[in-house]
Amino acid sequence: MTVHPRSLLASAAALILALFLTLPAVAAGTGLIFVSTEKGNEIVVLDKDYTIVKRIPTSRRPRDMHFNAAHTLLYVACGDDDSIDVIDVATLEVVDSIPTGPSPEVFAFTGDESAIYVSDEEDSRVERIDLTSRISTQDIPTGAEPEGILVTPDGKTVYATSEVADMVHVIDPASGAVTKNIVVGTRPRRLILTPDGSELWVSCELSSEIDIIDTKTLEIKDSLTFVPPGFREEDVTPVGMAITRDGSKILLSLGRANHIAIIDAHTHDVLKYVLVGKRAWSIDLSKDEKIAIVANGLSDDITIVDMASMSAVKSLPIGRVPHSVVIDD
């Protein structure tokens, strides 16, 4: 066996990196950026300088990703292998795989991280999987193609969208039953909750609107559309959202309109439309909220957005069909 000097160098670098990563108890975060690629079957890892440092092979069709609270593990829903893979953030290896129902798409942890709620896209149900026993402890029928999942911080409510049935299901996690169905716009995708818990924002991809649900009355209190100059309403297919910690700004990806909108969360005014890549979907904000990163599914790249100037800084090629981005900081 011959060892190529470059690979030796790479191994040494990886070793140093690994040592560095394991040292400061990870609470500070590694600064690494993780991008799931639906057709690449891998998580692409970039460092703070946006250099690709690793491609982690996963089960097929990795999509939604979440860290545990300690940021030691990264969970990845892999739709074509019916599993949630678990990546060790220190070693950047897949260390575990949790079986799910057919085609897991989006998931959320319960507050104590004892379980996850996951939408099984091909099975019209949301299931609660106990993370210790790996057993599905709740099996909640939903409309077809469930997607967005949100567990409220108090753990008392779970919200799920059904893309086909145009509704948000309100689920009582204690009983595992749907307590209310809220009819929203066409093809609801993702959910975010304002920090005070009063508003649930729902992105409705095919009616080009954001429905804002009052979480007290569980009724739609406002419906917003965002159309960048030069586009038509039907070109706007909103999906991904992110919100600043103080709840002042919401970032919304506009899908086929190839832009994100940065919105004043209180006045609902658009502060800026930022041109990103093709079919912009998921967005993540860095902890210091200086940058946002957008996954562009149809141009195989991600776009870094500077939040101070609200402009795109650069786009980077990633791999086949980037789905989600998370930043470990």
Binding site: S136, T137, Q138, D139, I140, P141, S175, G176, A177, V178, T179, K180, N181
Partner: peptide, 18 residues
């Protein structure tokens, strides 16, 4: 069993809704 209970829960929920 869980599935069955959940389904009943759902039906009840719909009945209330309706």
């Amino acid at each position: 069993m869980t599935r069955c209970l959940a389904a009943i829960g759902l039906l009840l929920a719909f009945a209330v809704q309706a």
